[in-house]
Simulated assay, not measured.
Amino acid sequence: MLATLEKADKGYIATFERRFKNSVEEVWSALTENDKLQQWMPNLEVVDLHINGIMKFNMNDGTGHSFNISILDCKENAYWQFEWGDGSVRFELEPKEDESVLLLKEYIPILDDHVPKDLAGWQVCLEMLYEVLNGRKMAFPKQSWEALYEEYKKQVRPLLDEA
Rank of each mutant, 00 (worst) to 15 (best):
L2V: 02
L2A: 00
L5A: 03
E6Y: 03
D9L: 14
I13S: 02
T15M: 07
E25N: 08
W28I: 08
S29M: 12
E33D: 03
N34Q: 11
N34R: 10
Q39K: 14
W40I: 07
P42M: 13
N43P: 00
L44M: 15
E45I: 00
V47Q: 07
D48K: 06
I54Q: 09
N58K: 12
N58V: 08
N60L: 12
G62F: 00
G64T: 01
F67T: 04
I69G: 02
L72K: 05
D73Y: 11
K75S: 14
E76P: 12
N77R: 10
Y79P: 01
W80I: 07
F82H: 13
E83W: 09
G85F: 10
G85E: 11
D86F: 10
S88L: 00
S88H: 01
S88T: 04
R90Y: 08
R90S: 07
F91D: 00
F91T: 06
L93E: 00
L102S: 00
I110D: 12
H114D: 15
K117M: 13
A120W: 04
W122F: 10
W122E: 01
K137R: 15
K137P: 11
F140H: 11
S144F: 13
W145T: 11
W145C: 11
E146D: 15
Y149A: 07
